[in-house]
Design a protein around this nucleic acid. Structure first.
Length: 255
DNA sequence: ATGCCCCCGTCCCGGGGA
């Protein structure tokens, strides 16, 4: 069973790339983020035609998350508890082949300090509560997505360039490690403990050709999932295509 | 040097992204 997370930066603009990725047989599940469209406008039929099912939690213009798979998707939950007035579509959870998976689009948090950074930290606390509930279930769980957190210095091309940024701020990183300390495993870092494993390259300033990337897309595995971890990697292919997303898929394989 | 690029919206500029 292979699971990939991919911030597609508009499902409408990236539909062809995503369909090709599905058809290529790289993965059994895609946890997608930044759809930038409503559920009504999600191209369900295009996926149905290639034998894939979808569960979506969309929003006009901004955010939006989905779970895509050729296998049956059940018990879908959208959103996190704790802030009923929050209308941003950033969390969806479902069961596929006995695996509980979530697609997460964590708030960016810039500019910091400010209300957007406060929202990011509150959102991470809400995610922490849900992650704790899930781990208590002792099911195999994968919390995948764009966490908008650079965990360690090794995960960015230039530590100085990110100093003070919401993605690299000590509060963001501490909240990320608090998630791990519940008992979750960072799949990619477990398989590749050293070296850069970037998942995002800015569109600007030639970041991609210069490999000025950061690692912000993560797959967090509960113990029952981590026990089955076989492999994990960044798939740089899609980032090199014409009209690419600024993120590329990160995947893991479970036995 | 927080602009460079890219995507969206009832749309030719501005907000948001990271």
């Amino acid at each position: 069973m292979r699971i990939a997370t991919w911030n597609v930066n508009s499902m409408k603009a990236r539909l062809h790339h995503v369909l090709e990725y599905c058809k290529a047989g790289h993965t059994d599940i895609i946890l997608a983020q930044e759809l930038k469209l409503t559920d009504e406008n999600f191209p369900v039929d295009a996926f149905r035609e290639i034998g894939w099912q979808v569960a979506t939690h969309g929003q006009k213009t901004y955010n939006g998350v989905a779970i895509l798979s050729p296998h049956e998707i059940s018990d879908v939950i959208c959103g996190l508890d704790g802030e009923p007035e929050d209308e941003q579509a950033r969390y969806i959870e479902a069961t596929i082949s006995g695996l509980r998976v979530a697609s997460i689009y964590l708030p960016n948090g810039n500019p910091r300090p400010g209300p957007k950074f406060d929202y990011k930290l509150r959102w991470m606390e809400r995610l922490h509560k849900r992650a704790a509930q899930l781990i208590a279930s002792e099911a195999p769980i994968i919390l995948g997505g764009d966490y908008n957190v650079i965990p360690q210095p090794i995960d960015c091309y230039d530590e100085k360039a990110w100093e003070g940024d919401a993605l690299y701020h000590p509060d963001s990183r501490a909240a990320f490690f608090r998630l791990l300390h519940l008992g979750y495993t960072d799949a990619l870092r477990t398989i590749h403990p050293s070296g850069e494993q970037y998942s995002f390259w800015d569109y600007q300033a030639g970041a991609w050709p210069k490999n000025n990337g950061i690692r912000i897309d993560h797959l967090l595995l509960s113990p029952e999932a981590a026990n089955r971890l076989q492999d994990a990697a960044v798939d740089r292919g899609p980032r090199g295509l014409e009209k690419a997303s600024d993120h590329t898929p990160v995947w893991c394989r479970l036995s």
